[in-house]
Design a protein around this nucleic acid. Sequence first.
DNA 1: TTACTATATAGGAATAATTACTATTCTCCA
DNA 2: TGGAGAATAGTAATTATTCCTATATAGTAA
Lengths: 150, 150
Amino acid sequence: MPQNKKQSDDKIARFESALKAAGLKLTYQRLEIFRELANAADHPTVEILHQRLKNRIPTLSLDTIYRTLATLEQHGLITRVQTAESQAHFELTIPHHHHLICEKCGRITDFDWPAFDNAPLPEKVSSWGKVFHRKAILHGRCLVCQSVLT
Amino acid sequence: MPQNKKQSDDKIARFESALKAAGLKLTYQRLEIFRELANAADHPTVEILHQRLKNRIPTLSLDTIYRTLATLEQHGLITRVQTAESQAHFELTIPHHHHLICEKCGRITDFDWPAFDNAPLPEKVSSWGKVFHRKAILHGRCLVCQSVLT
DNA sequence: TTACTATATAGGAATAATTACTATTCTCCA
DNA sequence: TGGAGAATAGTAATTATTCCTATATAGTAA
């Protein structure tokens, strides 16, 4: 899959220049944490990222992941996903995408909804203030969990 | 405001019968925690509820609030609000309402958006599974925070 | 390259939010 | 009104996250 490889390289390249532009140092840890998140189809937690990365980087500390994610979030490179769980989930910053959340397994799936992105907002909203981002979150049960009892 | 008083009584009455129907005991603490949440215009955290209630109920423990909210959430009477903060926020369960979140002060404001509630979902969603609830979350800056520097 | 300086990391300690434990109290029903 | 089971208060424990500090590293300039 040369196309996916190419896209992945693009992300890394953009990441590297974004770090430089922000005056942040390009460290092995930051690169690998970002790469892991970029390749993850799910929306991993800090703990999960640590599990996945410590094979490659045995000395990687949890604190570094927390710090790195916080730094990258501040610079808009990654986004903290809102869930009702106690552990925070993360994803690359991708505009205009929305979330399906299975209330049984908790998995978060991305989907696009251009009609929602472009729909006019209700009047009350303009009297509240200025909106920068909009997000749709759908809760339900995924096909896998529908086929499971209870 | 006899109308608001009436609505509040209605909520309490429905709450009491919901507890009975669920086989849960009607305790002073549960009633007051629910009442406080029902009257709150904001979306309080456990800590805030505790602050507000301990005037009336000095011995009320944090654990009771945590336990009570968890119980009421399990029975669908209240809802845990998804935010990026570490502390959980709660509200009465009210179908078809959405959230405006100010990225400066963090305050959560409710709004209605019937056009969103009734909009057709993208095709991909039906191949994912079955959707029970949909929610729109708008991030931006409220008028008060717009008038503040930085 | 090499040396320097400021930033980043590892590892462990500390904090914050939430949940568990247990003796006591209270609700509900007979 | 009494008794059984559920709920609470107070505290201890756990979980998620952040802080602290000595060491290591990246980026820069000679």
